[in-house]
Amino acid sequence: MITRIDTSHRASKLVIAGDRVETSGLVANDCSVGIAGQTRDVLAQLDALLAKAGVGREGLMRVQIWLADMKDFDAMNAVYDAWVGGVHQPARACVGSQLASADYLIEIQGWAQR
């Protein structure tokens, strides 16, 4: 059985299939806050979606990060490293990419296991 949560005409923000949990790409709600603020915003959204699936950060298996500009890599990592903590780090990839809007500095997608 597949459960889709926060569905729009184009995509679901969260899909649960058995014990597998996958989010769509998440971008900041407030784009005026710079890379650190956008990273915090997106990670808070990821936490909220994981909670809807009944899983916490310890269930994260993989995180995919897209940065509009790789010069933001260190500033993003400062926020990400504090968020992920020293335990249960997921596999991660981070690439530079043109995002859907010039206002978006970061997009994050997560995969978890319940």
Rank of each mutant, 00 (worst) to 15 (best):
Ile2Thr: 14
Ile5Glu: 07
Asp6Asn: 15
Thr7Asn: 07
His9Cys: 12
Ala11His: 11
Ala11Ser: 14
Ser12Arg: 08
Ser12Tyr: 04
Lys13Val: 00
Lys13Leu: 14
Leu14Asn: 05
Leu14Ser: 04
Val15Cys: 08
Ile16Phe: 07
Ala17Arg: 09
Asp19Ser: 07
Glu22Pro: 07
Thr23Val: 04
Ser24His: 05
Gly25Trp: 10
Leu26His: 03
Val27Arg: 07
Val27Lys: 02
Val27Met: 08
Ala28Arg: 00
Ala28Tyr: 02
Asn29Tyr: 02
Asn29His: 11
Val33Phe: 05
Gly34Ser: 09
Gly34Cys: 11
Gly34Lys: 11
Ala36Gln: 12
Val42Gly: 00
Val42Ser: 01
Gln45Met: 08
Leu46Cys: 07
Leu46His: 00
Leu46Thr: 05
Leu49Ile: 01
Leu50Phe: 07
Lys52Ser: 00
Ala53Ile: 05
Ala53Lys: 01
Gly54Thr: 05
Val55Ser: 06
Gly56Leu: 04
Glu58Tyr: 01
Glu58Phe: 04
Gly59Pro: 03
Gly59Trp: 00
Gly59Ser: 01
Leu60Gly: 01
Met61Leu: 13
Arg62Tyr: 13
Arg62Met: 13
Val63Met: 08
Leu67His: 07
Ala68Gln: 13
Asp69Val: 10
Asp69Ser: 13
Asp69Thr: 11
Met70Leu: 14
Met70Phe: 15
Asp72Met: 12
Phe73Val: 05
Phe73Gly: 07
Phe73Met: 10
Asp74Lys: 15
Met76Val: 09
Asn77His: 14
Ala78Gly: 09
Tyr80Glu: 00
Gly86Lys: 14
Val87Ile: 12
His88Asp: 10
Pro90Gly: 06
Ala93Arg: 12
Cys94Tyr: 04
Cys94Val: 14
Val95Ile: 13
Val95Cys: 04
Val95Leu: 10
Ser97Val: 10
Gln98Phe: 12
Gln98Lys: 15
Leu99His: 04
Ala102Pro: 12
Ala102Val: 14
Leu105Ser: 06
Leu105Asn: 03
Ile106Ala: 05
Glu107Val: 01
Ile108Arg: 00
Gln109Tyr: 06
Gly110Leu: 01
Trp111Lys: 05
Gln113Pro: 00
Gln113Trp: 15
Arg114Gly: 09
